[in-house]
């Protein structure tokens, strides 16, 4: 999202830097990547969430 146009949500998640990627699983914040990340790294972090069993 554009943080300039959405000041509340970054505050709610304590965002202090862009780009930040928040990964939600079943509506819950599961992981967070701050700063530039390669596609491979993003894929790995998403896979980690997909591979962990649902609680």
């Amino acid at each position: 999202m554009n943080v300039d146009e959405n000041p509340n949500i970054p505050g709610r998640f304590m965002i202090r830097g862009i780009p930040t990627m928040l990964i939600f699983k079943n509506g819950e914040l599961a992981d967070q990547i701050v700063g530039l990340a390669a596609k491979e790294e993003i894929a790995k972090r998403l896979d980690q969430q997909l591979l962990t069993p649902q609680l």
Binding site: V3, D4, I15, R16, G17, I18, T20, V34, G35
Partner: peptide
């Protein structure tokens, strides 16, 4: 604390 209050880019993160 990078991305959690420490930054090297004022134009990116100053807003927060």
């Amino acid at each position: 604390l990078s991305g959690h209050g420490v930054s090297t880019c004022a134009t990116c993160d100053g807003y927060f």
